[in-house]
């Protein structure tokens, strides 16, 4: 992905201005024949320094913009970049093929896997098809069917998550949104095959967790993982959606926060500025992490994998006891 296609986010406008200036100088040098190489070099070094500083001190709400960037690679983009022989498996076998959750079998560097993810679109048309990455209960039930399939054939399961949450609607309530998620949480605990989850962008509430009771959980550097969207939290606790930035700070949603709280096992690096600046680098980093996790887990027996998962989540929580 070429960054020319990316509109600058508000806080990175100065980066674009500097880069424009550098380009102007280059053009000037070429036209006038002056030797501006040294000046340009210095400027480039300074620009890099500036970018490093800017992107390493982003606020949670700025990182939210990166996590939700329209050009951020989606589940299917990663599938295309990391897997071969992708074979999508459709449907929940009960009347529906929810498009917000997509699953299938594939190979990663020769390793057979089950890949399941929430899908967001890049255009309005795609977003309508994928319901903005908000699954219905039927999507979770499709995932469950695929979990069982993977379990039967001992395929490691990789779930890639990017969702603003499970869909809140009339039909979703009638067909049991809460139950569908709950059942997935419980059934993931019973699987005897390795389960690896990666938060790609937004990991909001039960809708994300419904695919993430895994042996290993990783987050992309600029993704977020939270109990509720900052907007939702702001409208409940502050009674104003305008306080979303404050809520984003308070909720501790960044990958570093989650790592510090021992909720995730690691952070997958993104290129400077975010995954949308270089899809390939991001996908490669993600693939490396997936392969090393599979390697680590593939020696474990089914019972050990279950125990590993139980103990991982059993430890979570902070309370006082005397």
């Amino acid at each position: 992905m070429n960054k020319l296609n990316n509109k600058p986010l508000d806080f990175e406008k100065s980066v674009y201005q500097i880069e424009e200036k550098i380009q102007e100088l280059k053009n000037l040098g070429a036209e006038s024949g002056f030797d501006l190489e040294d000046q340009i070099k210095t400027l480039i070094i300074q620009a890099e320094e500036f970018k490093k500083q800017l992107y390493s001190s982003l606020t949670p709400s700025q990182r939210l913009l990166i996590a939700r960037h329209p050009q951020r690679p989606s589940f299917l983009n990663y599938v295309e970049m990391i897997a071969t022989d992708w074979t999508e498996l459709h449907g929940d076998r009960a009347g529906t093929d929810d498009r917000a959750i997509i699953g299938g079998i594939a190979q990663i560097e020769g390793q057979s896997v089950m890949l399941i993810g929430t899908q967001k679109g890049k255009t309005t048309k795609e977003n309508i098809e994928y319901n903005f990455g908000m699954p219905q209960p039927e999507g979770y039930r499709k995932a469950l069917r695929l979990f069982y399939h993977a379990d039967r054939f001992r395929l490691p399961i990789i779930t890639l998550i990017d969702t603003p949450g499970a869909y809140p609607g009339i039909k979703a309530e009638e067909t049991g949104q809460g139950t569908a998620i709950a059942v997935n949480l419980r059934e993931m605990a019973k699987l005897e095959t390795p389960l690896i989850s990666i938060i790609l962008g937004e990991g909001c509430s039960g809708g994300a967790l419904g695919l993430a009771v895994a042996n290993r959980v990783y987050m992309l550097e600029h993704s977020l993982y939270t109990v509720i969207s900052p907007e939702g939290c702001a409208s409940i606790l502050w009674r104003s959606a305008d306080m979303a930035n404050t809520a984003a700070e308070a909720l501790k949603i960044t990958s570093e926060d989650l790592f510090r709280l021992n909720i995730i096992d690691g952070i997958i690096k993104e290129p400077l500025g975010g995954a949308h600046y270089n899809w390939e680098i991001t996908a490669n980093n993600l693939k490396e992490q997936v392969l090393s996790a599979i390697k680590e887990l593939s020696g474990m027996s089914g019972q050990t994998l279950k125990k590993d998962r139980y103990e991982k989540f059993r430890k979570m929580g902070v309370f006082l006891e005397n």
């Binding site: 709950a182 949480l185 509430s205 039960g206 967790l209 993430a212 009771v213 993982y225 939270t226 109990v227 909720l251 501790k252 949603i253 926060d257 989650l258 709280l261 909720i263 989540f313 059993r314 979570m316 929580g317 902070v318």
Partner: peptide, 11 residues
Amino acid sequence: ESCLSLMQMAK
């Protein structure tokens, strides 16, 4: 308790 609460669902 943000994500710690979310993890109680899993636990």
